[in-house]
C-alpha cells in the first residue's frame, strides 16, 4: 500500500507550499489520490508556513495530517512544533543549515541535509526546498523521481528546471547515504 502523510514546515518564502504542490502533482501523475492543505492567514506574512500533503492509493479521509509518516522542517520553530507529530518508524528531514539543534527522537529515521549549502552549490539557495524534496522522494519512494521531474516540467518555471533537477538529485544522494 502506497501512503504518505507529510507535513512540510518552515518560514514563508522558503518554497514550503510549492514543495508540497510538486509532490501532489507527481502523485497525480501516477494516478494516486492526493490532497494539499496549507496554513493560511496573516501569520503567513514572513512568519511560519506549513502544509499537509497526503499521497495515497486509497481514498483520502481527512486532509489534515496529525500523525505524519514524514515531516520536512526548514527552521527551528517547525522542528519544535512537528518533531512529535512523526509516527514511530517515520521519517524526519531537517535542513541542518537552518536548524540549530539535533532531533530528540530516536525511534524514527532522521536525515540531516545542509540544504542551503547544497542548493547554493547547485545555483541558488532558493531551491533548498528541492534538495529536501529529492531526499524525501528517494527515501519514501512514494512517487518515482521521473514523475516528480515531469511535474516540475509541467508546473514549474521552465528556466529553473535544470537547476531544480540537479537539486533533487543532490538531495536524493543524501537519502542514499
Amino acid at each position: 500500500m502506497a501512503h504518505q502523510d507529510i507535513i512540510f514546515a518552515g518560514f514563508g518564502g522558503q518554497g514550503i507550499l510549492s514543495m508540497g504542490k510538486f509532490l501532489a502533482y507527481a502523485g497525480m501523475e501516477e494516478n494516486l489520490n492526493v490532497s494539499w492543505l496549507p496554513s493560511y492567514g496573516p501569520e503567513m506574512r514572513g512568519g511560519t508556513a506549513n502544509c499537509s500533503v497526503i499521497v495515497s492509493d486509497d481514498n483520502i479521509g481527512s486532509p489534515i495530517v496529525y500523525d505524519a509518516t514524514t515531516v520536512v522542517v526548514m527552521n527551528r520553530p517547525s522542528l519544535d512544533k512537528f518533531e512529535h507529530s512523526v509516527v514511530k518508524g517515520g521519517l524526519l528531514i531537517i535542513d541542518s543549515d537552518l536548524v540549530n539543534r539535533e532531533a530528540e527522537r530516536t525511534d524514527i529515521d532522521v536525515i540531516k541535509i545542509p540544504a542551503q549549502k547544497v542548493a547554493e552549490e547547485v545555483g541558488s539557495k532558493k531551491i533548498a526546498n528541492m534538495v529536501l524534496l529529492g531526499a524525501l522522494v528517494e527515501k519514501t519512494k512514494i512517487v518515482k523521481m521521473e514523475s516528480l521531474l515531469k511535474a516540475l516540467k509541467e508546473h514549474g518555471k521552465e528556466q529553473f528546471y535544470e537547476m531544480n533537477k540537479k537539486a533533487l538529485e543532490k538531495g536524493a544522494e543524501y537519502a542514499r547515504k
Binding site: 504542490k21 490532497s35 494539499w36 493560511y40 486532509p63 489534515i64
Partner: peptide
Amino acid sequence: DGMLGQMMEP
C-alpha cells in the same frame, strides 16, 4: 469550511 476553500485536490 475554510479548509475546503484553501485545500488543493484533483
